[in-house]
């Protein structure tokens, strides 16, 4: 799998003091690490890049999870408490219940692929950006 590159505007430099332009004299200590080079997790947790990552995850996962839980539990409740409705024929012998059941399969596949695509495009690059705050990817070449 190809590794996503960090976004062209290096937000880390831009943020450090709000200078806008990075010069070669910039100290390397923009890294959020302690003296031994270990990541400073509390600082990372407070960083804008990490907050952005958390926000992007929440924007997708919260509504998606709520929606699929409601859709599945609603389907189960309809099967248990509205069997007459679920028995209504729609296409030949295919009734509402079977059709909604097949739709559950379809929606699961669609949401799975949707999440995979969203993660690849919006989450993975942001993870790379957060990881760039540390020496994580450098020390191992």
């Amino acid at each position: 799998m190809t590794k996503a590159l960090p976004p062209p505007t290096d937000s880390r430099r831009a943020r450090a003091g709000g200078r806008g332009f990075a010069t070669f004299d910039d100290p390397a200590d923009a890294l959020l690490t302690d003296a031994q080079g270990n990541p400073d997790f509390a600082a990372i947790q407070r960083s804008d890049d990490f907050r952005e990552l958390r926000k992007r995850i929440a924007i997708f996962v919260l509504p998606a999870t709520t929606a699929f839980l409601a859709w599945y539990l609603g389907y189960v409740a309809l099967s248990a408490y509205a069997p007459e409705f679920m028995a209504t024929p729609v296409l030949g012998v295919l009734n509402t219940g079977l059709l909604l059941g097949l739709l559950q399969f379809a929606s699961t596949i669609a949401l799975t692929l949707g999440y995979a695509r969203y993660a690849r495009r919006r989450l993975d690059p942001q993870v790379t950006a957060v990881r760039a705050l540390t020496a994580e990817d450098e020390e191992r070449g």
Binding site: N38, P39, F41, A42, I44, Q45, F50, L53, R54, I57, V127, V130, R131, T134, E136
Partner: peptide, 13 residues
Amino acid sequence: QAEMEVRSLTGIG
């Protein structure tokens, strides 16, 4: 907690 949250979402550490 900070360590676990950062690590669980990014793999750092």
